[in-house]
Design a protein around this nucleic acid. Sequence first.
DNA 1: ATGTTTTCTTGATAAATGTCAAGAGTTTTA
DNA 2: TAAAACTCTTGACATTTATCAAGAAAACAT
Lengths: 192, 192
Amino acid sequence: MIDVFLNYLSDKFILSEEESYAFSRVCTIKKLRRRQYLLQQGDVWQKNAFVAKGVLRTYRVDEKGTEHIMQFSIENWWAGDRQSYHSGLPSAFNIEALEDAEIVLIPKADFDRLEIEIPKFGEFTRSLLERSFIASQNRIHASISYSAEEKYADFTKTYPDITNRIPQHMIASYLGISPETLSRIRNQIAKK
Amino acid sequence: MIDVFLNYLSDKFILSEEESYAFSRVCTIKKLRRRQYLLQQGDVWQKNAFVAKGVLRTYRVDEKGTEHIMQFSIENWWAGDRQSYHSGLPSAFNIEALEDAEIVLIPKADFDRLEIEIPKFGEFTRSLLERSFIASQNRIHASISYSAEEKYADFTKTYPDITNRIPQHMIASYLGISPETLSRIRNQIAKK
DNA sequence: ATGTTTTCTTGATAAATGTCAAGAGTTTTA
DNA sequence: TAAAACTCTTGACATTTATCAAGAAAACAT
């Protein structure tokens, strides 16, 4: 499964054999069963997680016990909690596998070191962060501008690969609407 | 006004005199009157803008003509459009001064070069980006989890300096609620 | 200083969305 | 393979929020 990760990297920038080895040396594989947690609220997150297989959800639970999904991560995506990663404080998030999954883990210390030792890698993670930021700006725009129906249409268009792989009520949670409303929206669309 | 910018930088990392000079050489000052634009939809954004004085708003206009505010920028903050900056495509945003403002501008080419020539600066802009990303994650969390009243409480708590400096209906726009609803929420709060 | 524009409020009403509850269909688990 | 858990749908109703309209107050511009 480390191959999946090395292929991903070599697709993003030119990777020598030594560099490839430097990565493989610091990677560990974590296999998760469906419903199993990669991170639980209260734990400190000090690593980087690359999804080689499966689907994860990152979510928070509010005082009323309602879950709010911040992110889905599928193959070739990353998961984690940047806030806890940088602050060293306990995380407010849970990260859970929605399907059996295989995750490539790199400890923070190694990851941070490799970013410096392999400048192309540092540049890549920066551009990843830039794109993550832009994606989150787009999500904010959708959430303050769109109706529930428009939010759903935007989601399915932006993430077609995720749409059919996860329960509908989780898409509703991600969009900040109730599962019943989403069900009715889909019913409306089907009638058209 | 470049002093304000140089003070800001030297507060963030140790800045030698030569480095200080390197920055001042590439900066230009743009004075904006209230209502004047720093960026208009359709223009390509290829610079970095630091607010030395005043308040800016970054917003989009939808098909119905409704404005949606993505960001406010006050003294010691940055403004711009990262998407246009990196893609070279026309911006979907407008950036407008809400008060007379003074902006320090650095062309993209110079900025990108200084990030490399002065590694501490590159690290700083990266950490700025990390913090911007975390802030936008928090905004997403608020927007999918909170009621209109909670969103307003969260805003005033997170940005007390902005709250009293801009018209209420613009906070409503930023939060994705109608100005009437925000007015009623404030009325409720006042009664308690 | 005064006319103009902007901002905020309030009421009446409409529309969107949420909540609760029940049931059918599906998938998972033991 | 049967029971349990989960998922989705639908109806009835409640609540939240938006819209439209009008007027008062405040800020701005000449």
